[in-house]
Design a binder for these strands. Sequence first.
DNA 1: CGATAACTTCATGTTAATATCTTATTATAC
DNA 2: GTATAATAAGATATTAACATGAAGTTATCG
Lengths: 147, 147
Amino acid sequence: MLSGTAEYALRAVVWLARQPDDQSVRASDLAESIGVPRNYLGKILHDLVRAGILESARGKNGGFRLATPPEELTLLRVVSSFDTIGVGAERRCLMGRPECDSSDPCPVHRRWQNASEAISRFFEETTVGDVLSDDRREGRSQADCRW
Amino acid sequence: MLSGTAEYALRAVVWLARQPDDQSVRASDLAESIGVPRNYLGKILHDLVRAGILESARGKNGGFRLATPPEELTLLRVVSSFDTIGVGAERRCLMGRPECDSSDPCPVHRRWQNASEAISRFFEETTVGDVLSDDRREGRSQADCRW
DNA sequence: CGATAACTTCATGTTAATATCTTATTATAC
DNA sequence: GTATAATAAGATATTAACATGAAGTTATCG
């Protein structure tokens, strides 16, 4: 469903969101924590900074942290820096037809619509804040996390 | 959502299902009809034969046609020859966690479940026969089809 | 100010998906 | 049975995703 890169980004953002007091985390530590290659994660984190999702600080005590309140950060915004999910008007046809909407549908259009809309809603409506709430409700802490 | 290859397979199967009297279609003609590179389609068709979804005949008047009644052929069976959709027990974690189920969920597990199940149901429950019914209901014929 | 710790950037390598080309192989028709 | 039309199969090319490595730049601390 998601590319490896988008998966990594999601892990990183969730991990940073769980950080108490918005503490910055160094790329190396983060890479080890979420099980992503150090150098590759560097690029991903930088992309997230350029997208305005994270902010970074150089030098001693530097690192990365969220630039946005978790409640306002949708999963769509996180993953769409890397993948084209295709929500709303940008929805891609399952069969790869260049034009495909209700007025000129591909053969599976009607039956795919339910699933397609469920996917869109998930990415558009779920925020990183929601994920943190779920965490708390299930009594999960950062220490429990493993990949 | 699907790989290019699985998309091509889906187009090919739907096209063949629409063929009157189970008539065979040559790979070259099929390739042109559905807009897929000739040689690449050859491989895909062969894979579908080995999966028992199509049958092929060589020599003059040869070609490919469905080996299964459309009503019994699910979209899952078609695409899973190429992609891992991850339905049922094989569902992949959205965040790439090796273990992720309701007893040990990843951070987004609960909220992703709805969409994930909608996807599974679509591929498991939709048959090629259903697609043909939709076609008829919408008064679409093979001639209308373009990619 | 100098050393160090960290992000930033660029160059390069690896792998899998996609696509093409060429040579078999096989069934049909005459 | 031979020619022909078609699939089957294997080798090779192209591209994008994934990953690594090394050098460059910037902020902080003593």
